[in-house]
Nucleic acid binder design. Structure first.
Lengths: 153, 153
DNA sequence: GGCAATCTTGACAGAGTCGCTAAGGATTGT
DNA sequence: ACAATCCTTAGCGACTCTGTCAAGATTGCC
């Protein structure tokens, strides 16, 4: 229903793989991202069954993305790990008890719109986008460090 | 943390008061909006302590808004009933364990941005806005009914 | 004043989820 | 063979969600 640590851990773990550019074991990711190892394995289990990720077993093995980073969205990852993002129930098609005020309910309309906004952003942002954001942030920090160095000298 | 039924019920209940234009008892709201009466009382308890709503006791009593409908936002209601909306923890000032990657973490940045978007929408929308949306929806339905009537005749 | 309507408070409880641990088995590369 | 790694299942403590139940206090109205 909501976005929980499981989903966020998953995003961070996959982003770590993107940055690593090669198979990365759960043990490594656990250290890099400071996430409990068994919990991480549970997460990758789901990601694998969903086809997001491939496992390479044995020594020097680990997980790799099964698709390119720009085709995997944050929304897809969250959907797999936390389920669909819902702010309300009554506007979903699978909601059996049809409300007779359906078409004239402002609350329903409001939550439905909000949910669409969030899902849209979630699905528009890919792992590749996150990687790009990260390199941007790093450059910014380095530039700032350069400035302070100038001031110090 | 997330937006739950408690918050959404609260919004609907307050919207019912706005539409009623006068004190509305929890018993009435319970029937109008099909919400469990004791649960609703629990909700109004919180709303009253937060100063959103005034109680008029005795016969013909009920609850009224203590401010005008355009100064009460959905965000404020949700904040009172469900707590602040958070998609992630690590970017909040009150989060004690400061992460050293704080300034270069793309995930953190992403969740923080998303949260801002949602909170902005939540706080920009007032009860009055919801009422306006509702009258808009009703007019639409009536217009549509008119059309079908024309077709039938 | 008496009564009924209404608000007020607090305890509690069943179900489910979250975040995580534990233990061991299966598969592969070297 | 052996070690690294993945894979599976089970359980568990804390918490939240969504209410229910039971009384008590206050007020309006006749």
């Amino acid at each position: 229903m909501a976005i929980s640590t499981r989903g966020r851990y998953g995003v961070r773990a996959l982003l770590a793989i993107v940055k690593a550019n090669g198979p990365l074991s759960t043990a490594h990711i656990s250290k890099l991202e400071d996430i409990s190892l068994p919990y991480l394995e549970q997460i990758f289990n789901k990601l694998k069954r969903a086809g997001i990720v491939r496992a390479k077993r044995g020594a020097q093995g680990g997980y790799l993305l099964s698709r390119s980073a720009d085709t995997i969205s944050v929304g897809e990852i969250i959907g797999i790990l936390d389920g669909p993002v819902k702010f309300s129930q009554c506007h979903h098609p699978d909601h059996e008890e049809e409300c007779e005020k359906r078409d004239i309910c402002a609350s329903r309309r409001f939550w439905s719109d909000l949910e669409n906004d969030v899902n849209s952003k979630l699905h528009k942002t890919s792992l590749q986008d996150l990687k790009n954001i990260e390199t941007g942030l790093i450059e910014k920090v380095q530039a700032h460090d350069g400035e302070t160095n100038l001031l110090r000298s």
